[in-house]
Every structure is written in C-alpha cells, then in structure tokens.
Nucleic acid binder design. Structure first.
Length: 113
DNA sequence: TTTCTGACAACAA
DNA sequence: ATTGTTGCCAGAA
C-alpha cells in the first residue's frame, strides 16, 4: 500500500523550505525522509518544477557526493554555486568541500520536536 | 492512452 | 574500481 497521491512534490517543497540558511541536504536524504528512498530522482524533478515557484531554496540540495549537479538548471551555470558561496558554503570545482559540516538530514533534524 | 524523460542512488557484474 | 541497469513518480508529447 503506497498511497502517494500526488503529494510527493508538495512534500519535497515542504522539506526544502525547512533547510536552514547555510546548510545543504541531498536528493536521497529527502527521498528517504519521504519513505521513498529510491525516488531521489523525483526530488530533483520536483525541484525543477519548484524553481519556477519562488520561495524554495533549491540550491541547497545537491547530490550525495556534494556535486552541484543541478546547477545547469539555474539562470546561469554559476548561479547555484554563487548562492551557496554567499551562504558560506565552500565550493571547489563544482563540488562542496567537506559537505559533512553543512549537511542537514531531515530524517535526523526533523525527528525531534 | 502509451511512451518517454528527468537536479539521483543503489546494486550487479 | 568502473560501467551498466533498475527503481521511483509525475508531467509532457
């Protein structure tokens, strides 16, 4: 029984909006938090639609290795990196340096409270 | 309606 | 270690 009746996008948006300033998370982490660990792909797809909306910090979502795979979907290929840099996230060659110290896992951070 | 295609990630060989 | 395949869901053609 997997009743996912089109809530997926909204869930992704909800989680993405909760990512704190200067922190990042991954597609897989969000997918896992939504109980669909194999649908990381959909998270990206959702964010693609989300970026047309306004208040969703899609730039704070990267792939598991810290690579900014989604940067090509922004206004310019450097927009995502610039946004993250402005939040204090160090990036070298399209990849976050030591992403562990910025990583924000919804499964952990949202467990409390 | 059917088919294809995605900001990924886990697994098999 | 690297390459190819598969799962996942929703939207566009």
């Amino acid at each position: 029984m997997k009743t996912y009746t089109g809530i997926f996008f909204e869930d992704v948006y909800a989680v993405a909006r909760m990512i704190p300033y200067g922190r990042i998370t991954t597609y897989g982490a969000i997918a896992a938090y939504l109980s669909t660990p194999k649908s990381a792909r959909m998270v990206g797809w959702s964010l693609n639609a989300a970026k047309l909306r306004s208040d969703i910090p899609a730039h704070r979502v990267v792939n598991k290795r810290g690579l900014l795979t989604g940067k090509i979907h922004f206004e310019s290929p450097t927009t995502m990196e610039e946004l993250l840099s402005s939040e204090g996230v160090e990036i070298v060659n399209g990849q976050i340096v030591a992403m562990e110290r910025y990583f924000w896992d919804p499964a952990i951070e949202l467990k409390l409270s």
